[in-house]
Design a protein around this nucleic acid. Structure first.
Lengths: 213, 213
DNA sequence: GTACATTTCAAACAGGTGTTTTAATCTGGT
DNA sequence: ACCAGATTAAAACACCTGTTTGAAATGTAC
């Protein structure tokens, strides 16, 4: 029993590292099982398929993150007063950083996985995400609409997707960006620093004045 | 002679459509040659390898776009007065839309290719881009710094990459976003409409007030 | 300790990839 | 009309992918 769980965990640990670094499509099961020091067939035995392994890797973090986010969003929605955009966006910070307690470097790994997930397998992973955790994001959209009552829903739709792109791209190329920043500006920015830089950028973009057409 | 060019062009035309829709890695040479109605070996004969085919596809647009951008940036830099961010960003609009004269739907295709390029093959294509067209972007960065003299260079670095992520992600998932927007909000947004929505979002994000640490 | 179920392992499978080879075909210049 | 060079065509190549198989090993309960 403990040996079984051990193998599963070894696979999950090796897989998330490789997935975060090279993407899902560019990481083979042979790389994973070699890194985890288990047999090749172990992935299909314990998880069924590569697709299900990917979902299991993400689920380990999503099952912790999403209830926390839901809780925070509900708390804000329960209050009658409207909250400004900065407050709404900052809700993400604490639950994300708490992923570091799940596992060392958990926040960085999860955000990189999220970035890979949206760029690598366009349709499928998005379906999985929306189907399992869509409700939580509905509350978030509601909070944004309350924070920006002057914006039509369609404009908010576009700007939230612009923001999603910012986050996903930044996290997918996180390592390269950190290296350039370290080389060019002598500053070592942790993942927390990147998040803190993102918040005002996103808040200003989402709340930007409408373009007069 | 004309037959040779015809085959090359048929390959380029088929390749750019498939690349834009499915990404570089997920498009096989057999799909391309089948769609172009040429022999499989024609790609390697005319272009050498798949990698060189990808570069040729991009080059067809970059060789038109980059000199135009360079010209616009130089014109702005020649004037002594500083330009605001909105003006600087708007410089991209006309050269990008002129790609439609190169080829019908050229703007959409090129921007989608750009999106795919930065997400699919992380390192290699970025190197190709920087190596061949890096100088043009230096002028752009200079203009942004002049527009935002209050921001330290490192902050501008991060915010420009945030913006790059916004653009790349939006263009890579352009089709899906257009479909959702059409279904949910009954609005049919052309690529030009997306660009016009992007400008104020990016301008506000880049110029957002510094986060007091 | 002997059954039984679970897990590991090496090997093979079926299918796809980019690339190369070899011969056939077409084309333009003399 | 002929021949050299450029182009096309079909086939095979070498390699990699995720998955499955069947036997060996291990663990578990009686």
């Amino acid at each position: 029993m403990s040996a079984k769980l051990n193998t599963q965990q070894k696979i999950l640990d090796a897989a998330e590292q490789l997935f975060a670094g090279s993407g899902f499509a560019d990481t083979s099961l042979r790389q994973i099982t070699s890194e985890a020091e288990v047999n090749l067939a172990a992935v299909n035995y314990h998880f069924g398929s590569k697709k299900e392994l990917i979902q299991s890797v993400l689920q380990r973090y999503l099952s912790v993150l999403m209830p926390r986010l839901d809780q925070e969003f509900s708390r804000l929605l329960a209050q009658t007063k409207a909250h400004d955009l900065h407050t709404v966006l900052t809700v993400f910070v604490k639950p994300l950083l708490e992923l570091n307690t799940v596992k060392p470097q958990g926040t960085r790994i999860f955000l990189q996985l999220l970035g890979r997930g949206y760029t690598d397998v366009q349709g499928h992973l998005r379906w999985f995400f929306n189907h399992h955790h869509g409700r939580v994001l509905d509350k978030f959209v509601l909070l944004v609409q309350q924070a920006c009552p002057q914006l039509p829903a369609s404009e908010i739709f576009w700007r939230l997707h612009f923001s999603l792109g910012t986050i996903v791209f930044t996290m997918a190329s996180n390592q390269a960006l950190q290296e350039i920043a370290a080389a060019d500006f002598n500053e070592n920015v942790e993942i927390e620093g990147v998040i803190q830089r993102l918040i005002p950028y996103l808040a200003a973009g989402i709340a930007s004045p409408l373009n007069p057409n």
